[in-house]
Amino acid sequence: MIPCSGIADRLPEFVGGDLASADAAAVRAHLIACHECRRQAGTLQRARGALLGAAASAMRGIDEADFTAMHRSIVAATTSALQAKESAQPAMQRRPGPWWLVAAAALLVCGMWFGMQSRRDRSVWHRAPTATPAASSIVVPWSGPRLDMRLLGDERPMAPPPSEPAGFGSGLMGRHRLRALVDEGVPMPLPETPR
């Protein structure tokens, strides 16, 4: 049999008819045997009855005419809300829009224009070729043999291409190959690559 403490927790649901049938049967069986739990269930039932009774008696205090009048006032209130909404709509249409929206759009357009201008200035494609001061050659790591690169505007003649292929040791691939040569006993350092 379920102990009294377990029953006390279920009594509100039992009295309210919220228990599953198996649980309700167990509670009912306990109540038949236990006087104290039966007394508690009786109190709960009387309290619930009083609640329902008070609710029902309050309902008798409102008659049909009250609801008819209430219906009219609700419909009138919603109609006036609708009219207020409709009268507000043409005013909204006359206005060009909130001032901050216009200002934000203008700012956005200006920002985009300036942004495009500055990008255009930075771009290599749109920059005028300028002579650079005594440009030294720039070595760019890459996967092939060493190449000479000159800045735009540097009109000095390029060195003639090497008669032999450039030696290893330049560029990324070159460094990898260099390690391989060390392992093979090639004397270090490698001779300077002719320019």
Partner: peptide, 27 residues
């Protein structure tokens, strides 16, 4: 409207307040 009024009445406990609540709920 009746259900709205009675729910409001049983929660609020006053007819006038319940009537206002029901009307405002519909609006």
């Amino acid at each position: 409207q009746r259900r709205a009024f009675w729910i409001a009445f049983h929660v609020v406990g006053r007819v006038e307040d319940a009537r206002d609540v029901a009307q405002e709920a519909f609006v």
